[in-house]
């Protein structure tokens, strides 16, 4: 699966026409202990660049921005009971799974090296 990154610290792992969206390891470290993930419902449409939910730690809350557009086909229910899974392994604990409506949008995203530079600059 190919992984793309957004400067707002979300990733999307793409498998055919399906994308798994979560927050990056850098983002989970910056947030600290995650206590709640506010997720959309299956069937909702998300739009690239628009928020689709929020993630909260004890002291901070951050909007979740969709890296690409599409329909939500699954949400990671495990995060409802145990949001700290995001801290344990952000890259494998995706938040939503979407059916991509416009795969060309992926070209606007960053690859791993470019994203690393974004993190470097913020630090």
């Amino acid at each position: 699966m190919k992984i793309y990154y957004a400067p707002s610290h979300e990733y999307i792992k793409v498998d055919g026409n399906v994308g798994y969206v979560g927050i990056t390891d850098y983002a989970q470290k910056a947030l600290g202990n995650v206590v709640y993930v506010d997720m959309p419902e299956v069937g909702d449409e998300v739009e690239a660049g628009e928020d689709f939910g929020a993630i909260e730690s004890v002291k901070a809350a951050s909007d979740l921005i969709a890296p690409a557009s599409g329909e939500v086909i699954e949400v990671n229910e495990a995060l409802a009971d145990n949001p700290r899974l995001v801290n344990e392994d952000a890259m494998n604990n995706w938040i939503i799974k979407i059916e991509l409506s416009d795969p060309a949008e992926l070209d606007n995203l960053l690859d791993e090296a470019a994203y690393a530079k974004v993190c470097e600059a913020e630090h």
Binding site: Y36, D51, E56, S57, V58, K59, A60, A61, S62
Partner: peptide, 13 residues
């Protein structure tokens, strides 16, 4: 508790 909801964090929205 649940202070992250407070406006000082997600302030523009």
């Amino acid at each position: 508790t649940l202070q992250a909801r407070e406006q000082h964090i997600r302030r523009e929205k």
